[in-house]
Nucleic acid binder design. Structure first.
Length: 246
DNA sequence: AAAAAGATCAACCGCCAAGCT
DNA sequence: AAGCTTGGCGGTTGATCTTTT
């Protein structure tokens, strides 16, 4: 299930690694420069290929095989909050490589998402929607895109809430991601509901568990403290919300 | 039994940020 | 300040394996 070995025009070998190559790489590991390492080890590989082979298969304590339920829970949880941050997931799962986690997500976990989950959808106009996947009607939330920071707050709040609510019910967490949203920096934030109230109002400061359990997430997004405070959540029911941008 | 379709996963590719010159 | 090098990350590919028809 690997690519057949071959050589490119520069004489660099590509494709599956042989046992002999693995041994040479292991013997030379520790050199501070990945690009120099293959020369010293007598390998016809590029530095990147050596690094990848080492990180995914040859480094000590690397694990392969079935993922445990706990590992899958970690992956699902991080994915719900941060999207495709495979390296962050790998940091939380000793012995697992980002590549393996990524593969496992695409082949096993991704398809387990329920059909009635709430999903975000990027609109052609650049607006942002939150809607039930089965609903053909109005989106739960629809807003003009604002600053990248505003979008990240929106996604962070929604994904965290839906994830936390899933722990007390049978429903599964929804999948949210900020990766697809490029937001013009000069657009004035405008998130409001049909009555013209600021969208953030349902999330007025509340020193509840939401904030304390989400500090790391917000910190990782680089959000200022006052914005984190604004993003706190109280009695938020996703199905009750219908917000439109003006 | 054979062909087709789907699933798996190792490895490659391009982009980006940080560090160095 | 600008350009270059390097390591790291996430998306994608493609060969092989497994299941279905």
């Amino acid at each position: 299930m690997v690519r057949a070995p071959c050589f490119d025009k520069n004489g660099i070998k590509k494709g599956a690694w042989s046992e002999d190559e693995d041994n040479k790489l292991i013997q030379r590991y520790g050199h501070p420069n990945w690009r120099e390492l293959p020369k010293l080890a007598g390998l016809s590989r590029c530095g990147k290929s050596c690094r990848l082979r080492w990180m995914n298969y040859l480094r000590p304590n690397v694990r392969h095989g079935n993922f445990t339920k706990e590992e899958e829970d970690v992956i699902t949880s991080v994915h719900n909050k941060l999207g495709n941050k495979w390296s962050k997931m790998a940091a939380l799962l000793p012995g697992r490589s980002d590549n393996e986690i990524k593969n496992h997500w695409h082949t096993h976990l991704k398809n387990r998402a329920p059909k009635d989950q709430t999903v975000l959808k990027k609109e052609q106009s650049g607006s942002l929607e939150l809607r039930d996947a089965n609903s053909k009607g109005c989106p739960l939330i629809k807003t003009s895109l604002n600053t990248q920071q505003e979008v990240e707050i929106l996604l962070a709040v929604l994904s965290s809430d839906l994830t936390s609510s899933s722990s007390t019910s049978e429903s599964s967490p929804c999948s949210l991601s900020v990766s697809d949203y490029a937001v013009p920096s000069d657009v004035t934030p405008q998130i409001s509901d049909t009555a013209g109230n600021l969208w953030i109002e349902p999330f007025l400061p509340d020193a509840g568990s939401f904030i304390s359990s989400s500090d790391n997430m917000f910190s990782s997004l680089g959000l200022a403290d006052d914005l984190i405070s604004q993003a706190s959540l109280q009695d938020y029911m996703i199905d009750d919300v219908l917000l439109w941008s003006s």
